[in-house]
Amino acid sequence: MINKVVSGADEAISDIENGNTLMLGGFGLCGIPENCITALVKKGVKDLTCISNNAGVDDFGIGLLLQTRQVKKMISSYVGENAEFERQLLTGELEVELIPQGTLATRCMAAGYGMPAIFTPAGVGTEVAEGKEVRNFNGKDYLMEYAFDADFALVKAWKGDTAGNLIFRSTSRNFNPVMAMAGKITIAEVEELVEAGELDPDHIHTPGVFVHRIFQGSAYEKRIEQRTVRTKN
């Protein structure tokens, strides 16, 4: 069994360089690679292009990398919860490409499945279609969208083993499995790292072949963005 374990986030991200393109898993603040983000802030790499569904909030998630001006460009579907993001966008410090959420997921998927492009109806007839090839299949128009090309994918899983196999928990799965398949180098941080053989092969969501480095993260905050509850009668 090939051992994928590294000591921690600092070692895992040590070769991420200025100007790299990163995929970061998560939906809102759910399932984000908290430890890797903290390590990137510490390392201080700049001019990053970040592919991530959202851009965190002011003081958590990718918002931490925005505060320190480490992000040159965001590729996201929705960025509504971040005032610092808005400020940098309006002053032109930050470049933003907004793309449909399904297109974002499927461009990751295409990269992970070794396909150069996909055809999707999302955005046909809108400004998203500008400059893109349109093809008609069975009477319906589709946009050609390219697979992403990311230097690193940073994903967060619930459990992982020393062989790099991953299991996600609940809706923190979101973009993580498709991004894990898509990175040239994929770094997985997990809440619980176990020996190879301890996870049931039938329960693996992401096979270890896609994961290059794995470590057990620490001090997960797992912040809740919208705490909604009902009261017991």
């Binding site: 939906f27 809102g28 603040l29 759910c30 399932g31 569904n53 919860e81 959420q101 399904g102 974002l104 997921a105 499927t106 990751c108 998927m109 619930w158 996600f168 928990r169 609940s170 809706t171 923190s172 799965r173 979101n174 973009f175 993580n176 499995p177 498709v178 969501h205 797992k222 912040r223 809740i224 963005e225 919208q226 705490r227 909604t228 509850v229 009902r230 009261t231 017991k232």
Partner: peptide, 28 residues
């Protein structure tokens, strides 16, 4: 109240619950 799970949210980022028969999958 008290049973919120940070790993279980809806598309509005609100804490929610599953039901008998629910299933979870990735974004693609």
């Amino acid at each position: 109240e008290g049973e919120e799970d940070a790993d279980l949210i809806n598309a509005g980022k609100q804490t929610i619950t599953t039901l008998p028969g629910s299933s979870i999958f990735d974004s693609a």
